[in-house]
Simulated assay, not measured.
Amino acid sequence: MKKIGFIDYYLDEWHANQYPGWIKEEAARSGRDYTVAYAWAEKDLETGLDTESWCHKHQVERSASIEELVDKSDCIIVLSPDHPEHHERLSRIALESGKPVYIDKTFSPDLQSGIRMFHLAEEHHTPLFSSSALRFSEELTPYSGGRMERSLEYLAVTGPGHYENYAVHQFEMIVSLMGIGANKIKSLSTNNGRLMVVDYADGRRASMHQLQDAPFQASMQWANGDGIFISPCTNFFPGFIHALLEFFETGIPPVPKEETLEIMSMIEAGHRAMANDDIWIAISRK
């Protein structure tokens, strides 16, 4: 049996609570022998389960240290999905291990820390990937991965939440469908509603509209005049968990690092754009 280790800032959070069951279901469905076996957290959530109680609830062995967890695990998931500022620190030992590592969304709080994490992984020959689950939506998968990006003239995506921890979902949708090469971004936003326009060097454009209760949707317009509207995007977590176990099995990341870093660049430039309304902001890759 292949054993997965969880590293988290605190464990009683939505992703850590759902992933063990989903991984068990997908492993059984696909005939893969994987289980979440170990967990370590830096702190306890003051209003939730402490680490010991979480481990007991999920039948997972509590590790005394990150070093112990990485040593015992065959593959590692670094969580902390709503606190990416901790990812670089929490993932360091795992990224030096040579074992497959998945780092949860949002991969990094800024582009430079994302670049450093990929560099560390490459230095130690550690397979690494990160992604929003929205990339694996049942409806988007037939169009993603470079299948139609050059003929896709305009893409509009919508979704809910706050920019800090949910913008990654919509930018992931954009990059998975339109590829890399965005050169600037503009914000036309209010305090509680965000509209961002992304411009590509070849004239293509995409927009993301973020409102608190908006569903994840996508409208695609091709250069030949055809279009399609998808509402809502569904079954993205089953698709993601399938891709995750495939990655652990093969060591081949399903998402190129260039796309992940492009998304981090967009998020970072988007922050600057919201501080400079209706002004184009360059998307930097350095």
Rank of each mutant, 00 (worst) to 15 (best):
G5C: 03
Y10T: 11
D12Y: 05
Q18S: 08
Y19F: 14
G21Y: 04
E26D: 08
A27V: 03
A27P: 01
G31V: 04
R32H: 03
W40V: 13
T47S: 08
L49D: 07
L49H: 00
S53V: 08
W54Q: 09
E61F: 02
A64L: 13
A64D: 15
S65D: 04
L69R: 00
D74H: 04
C75P: 03
L79I: 05
V101W: 00
K105D: 00
P109R: 00
L111T: 11
L120M: 12
E123A: 09
A133K: 00
R135M: 09
T141L: 13
P142R: 04
E149Y: 08
Y154A: 14
L155D: 13
T158K: 12
H162E: 15
M173Q: 10
L188F: 10
V198E: 06
R204H: 00
R204P: 00
S207D: 15
S207Y: 07
Q210D: 11
D213I: 05
Q217C: 14
M220C: 10
G225V: 08
D226A: 14
G227V: 07
E246K: 01
E246R: 01
I252L: 02
P253Q: 07
P254N: 02
E258L: 07
E259K: 04
T260N: 02
E262C: 10
M266T: 08
M274W: 06
A275N: 10
N276Q: 09
S284D: 15
K286E: 14
